[in-house]
Design a protein around this nucleic acid. Structure first.
Lengths: 121, 121, 121, 121
DNA sequence: GTGGTCTAGACCACG
DNA sequence: GTGGTCTAGACCACC
């Protein structure tokens, strides 16, 4: 009925993630304009405050920039995207290896697990 | 006051995780007694209520059982350890593949990343 | 200080029971908002933490769902009410029959007892 | 492995219940000697303190009497048994009807439920 | 405003 | 000694 956000991760970060991923997959390009806070709030069925927070967070990270009176845009600097992708990838990878190691799995078992999971799951 | 818990994950769950990992690595065995709530609170430098919550949660999951007036013990059933390991492994794996896929990586790139990371890191 | 909770059953479960009964009797409907933790605490004259625990427990059982920053609501799925009624009824019934059997009463005597009691009482 | 007491009801009361039920079913008669605290503790695989508490509780209720140096005996007064049975029966019945009424069941549905339960269950 | 976590300190029943 | 409940009061992130 309402929106479809779950998991314990805050909604404003889940929305930021969605934008990150679209960026990384080149569905969004540097210079592209994002929907207005209000518009985005309607699309995602979320409180405008929450979108505002999403945009602020992304601006803080240098992913987007707001131009007064014009709206919010993906940062022009192209590096940003690859930097971002690299950083996210490395973070995810690091967390994964750390946890799996704590579970006592070897590198081979991790690789094996991924293969099984991406096929079976 | 100066304990070392971080991340946004609640402390009571982080402590549960620590115990899970010790179980999975066979440092704890079925039937073993856990420190009393108060003792554990001292060791981890958190409030006894927080440990109480950790223990309740673990009991709810069937990992642990309490014997009235005697303490809290790792559940006797041997299966639970393997179940736990499987569940934790699957969760980690699932999260990893999901995030990497959203970042646009293929299965091969994931495997490659792990190999690089475990050697270089 | 002067609330009216008795029995050895924990207060937080007694409050959950009250809500369950209101649900089963259709005084509460799926989607209805429950009073906030603080408000409910005032109404029932118990500590907010105790209500928090009630709400957590009910969420764990799927009776209730919390929407971040908005409050706690009766789960939308209509089935849960009937499931709940069935479960509660069965539990009560089971306990009754078990105890009466242990007291050496036959099914006929139980039925007889109920008839007498509901008329006389 | 250990003893087989469950449910949240205290062990000392569960043991008292067992004795009550044997009394009500005439398996124990007024004047019969109960096992010593120590003996009973061994039989039930429970701490002697717990049995002591059981016996104290039963003495408080007038069900048993202790004769110094001889042991613990079922109270001689025969009425005790029937009184007890009546009281227990009424209590159970009262609780049952109260709860079922709160669940919105009619007398007929209660009777029906018992019939179903004692056949099907 | 909302729910969620945490601390501090108390009390209780149980074994 | 053990775990379990409760209160008081605080702080937090989120909407």
């Amino acid at each position: 009925m309402d929106n479809h956000f779950q998991s314990s991760k805050p909604i404003y970060l889940q929305i930021a993630d969605q934008i990150f991923y679209r960026l990384v997959r080149k569905e969004l390009l540097p210079g592209d304009k994002l929907p207005s806070v209000r518009e985005m709030a309607i699309q995602t069925k979320v409180n405008p405050n929450t979108i505002q927070r999403t945009y602020s967070e992304m601006e803080r990270l240098g992913i987007v920039e707001t131009r007064r009176g014009q709206g919010t845009f993906i940062a022009e600097k192209a590096e940003i995207v690859d930097e971002l992708k690299d950083r996210l990838t490395r973070e995810v990878l690091e967390g994964f290896v750390k946890q799996m190691t704590e579970l006592g799995l070897t590198k081979e078992e991790m690789v094996e697990g991924i293969k099984e999971f991406t096929e079976g799951g």
